[in-house]
Amino acid sequence: MMTARAARLHAFGEADELRIETIDLPEPAPGEVALRQTAVGFNFIDIYQRKGVYPLPLPTGLGFEAAGVVEQVGPDVRDVRTGDRVAYMNAGVGAYADRRNVPADKLVVLPDGVSDEAAATLLFKGMTAQYLVRKTHKVKPGDLVLVHAAAGGVGQILCRWAKDLGAEVAGTAGGPEKLAVARDAGCDFVIDYRQGNWVEAFHEATAGRKARVVYDSVGKDTFLGSLDCTAPFGLVVSYGAASGPAPDISPELLNKKGCLYLTRPSVFPHNADVATFRANAAELFDAIARGAVTVPIGARFTLDQIADAHRAAESRATTGAILIVP
C-alpha cells in the first residue's frame, strides 16, 4: 500500500490548526485513479472552511483543485490512462496532498498548451470566471463591467476575459500596487476602495455611467455600494464574501435602485455533470491558449508551508494566484 502526505484539519480555527500527516493510500477503487499531484491550487474558500464559516465534518482535508500525473488506473476507468496529465477542481476536499485517489469522472485531461502549474492555479478560478462571463451574464461588446477585488486571482481573470469579449472594465482594489495589477489585467478604470468614497470615485471615473453587471466577491464592505454602481435593469452578482457576508436587504431595495437583478451563483452547480464540466473546461483552455486568460503566480509554498500560505492570503499580502508545490 502506498502512502501520501496530506494537510489535515482536526479543529476549526487559525492556520496553525493545519497539520501535515502521512496517511495510507489504498489501491484505486472502481472508477478511480491514483494521482501523483505536481501542483495544488489555493482558493479563499479554503480559509472559510478552515475557520468553520463553511463547516466540514472533522477531521478533514482541505483544497479543491490540483494537477498531476495518473500513476494507476482502477477498474472501469476508460477515459483517462496511466501517464496522462490531468487536473480537477471538484473531487471533494483534500487536494492539499502529494498523492490522492480521485474519481476519473472528476478529471479533465490537460492539453499540451496548458502546464500543470497553470491548470492548478487557473482551473477553479478560471471555471469561476467562465460561468460568470459566459453563463451568469453573457458579457457583450460595449458592456461596462465592474469587478471587485480586480487584483485577485479570479478578479484578474474576470477582467482579462471581459476585455477579450469586448467590454469596458472598471476594477476596484486596495492600494497603489494592487491598482497597478488591476490595470495590467486590462481595467479601463481603477478605483481604490480604501480611499474615501469609492462609489463616488467609480461614478467620476466612468463619467456617470453605471455598470451593466457588477461582480462582487467582497461582500459586506462593497455590496450596498455595488447596488449604487449598477445601471437600471442591471445585474449584481454576489459570488463571494472576502470581507464577510453581504448584508440582508429587502427586495424592495432592488426596485428603488433601478429594478436591479441580484443573484448568488457558485461554480459547482455550473459544472455538476462530467460532460458540462469538460465542455466548460475546453472553453477555458481555449481562452488560455488565446492568451485571454492568464494569472501570474504571486507566491509559491511547499506543502509543509501550508499554514504560511493561509496567513499570506488572509493578510492580503499577495496578488495573483497562490500555488502549493507538494
Rank of each mutant, 00 (worst) to 15 (best):
V181L: 08
G153S: 10
T172C: 10
A162Y: 09
F189K: 04
K140A: 14
R209W: 10
D216Y: 11
G240Q: 07
T172L: 09
G142K: 09
G171I: 07
K138I: 15
L253M: 12
A162W: 03
Y215M: 12
D188A: 15
P265F: 09
H137A: 15
P265N: 05
T136D: 03
E200V: 14
S250P: 01
E200K: 14
R134D: 14
H148G: 06
F189T: 08
A180H: 05
V213K: 01
L253A: 00
L179D: 03
L146A: 09
T222C: 04
Y193V: 13
D184S: 14
H270E: 14
C259P: 04
W198V: 05
G196Q: 13
N197S: 14
N255M: 15
K178I: 11
G142F: 06
G234A: 05
V169I: 12
E200A: 14
A205V: 03
V139L: 06
E252A: 15
C187Q: 02
D184Y: 06
G142A: 12
D228G: 12
G208H: 10
G196M: 13
L235N: 02
V154M: 00
V147S: 00
L165I: 03
F268T: 13
K163M: 05
L165T: 01
A162E: 04
V154K: 01
T206K: 03
V236G: 08
A151W: 01
W198T: 03
G186N: 09
L260D: 00
D188Q: 12
A182P: 03
L158M: 13
T172S: 14
T206R: 01
A162H: 05
K210S: 06
Q195D: 13
G171P: 05
A231Y: 04
V213G: 04
F202Q: 08
S250G: 10
V218G: 12
G234I: 05
L227A: 02
L227K: 06
W198F: 11
L146K: 01
A162Q: 04
T136M: 07
G175I: 11
K140L: 12
L158N: 02
K210M: 11
S266V: 10
V147A: 05
F223I: 09
L254V: 06
E200W: 11
P141N: 00
L224C: 04
H203S: 04
V181S: 06
V267P: 04
R209Y: 04
I157Y: 07
P251W: 00
S266W: 14
Y261D: 03
A242S: 15
V237H: 07
V154W: 03
P176N: 13
A149W: 00
V139E: 05
G208D: 02
V237T: 11
V169S: 08
G196N: 08
L235G: 07
L253G: 06
A211G: 10
I157N: 08
E200Y: 11
P141S: 14
H270C: 11
V213S: 07
D192N: 14
R134S: 15
G219D: 04
T263M: 13
N255S: 12
K163G: 02
R264H: 09
V169R: 07
D228I: 03
A211M: 13
F233G: 06
P245V: 14
D192L: 03
V181G: 02
L227Q: 00
A150I: 12
K178R: 15
G244F: 10
T172R: 04
V145N: 02
D188C: 13
Y193G: 01
T263C: 12
V145L: 05
K256A: 14
I191A: 08
E168M: 10
V154H: 00
F233W: 13
F223K: 05
K257G: 06
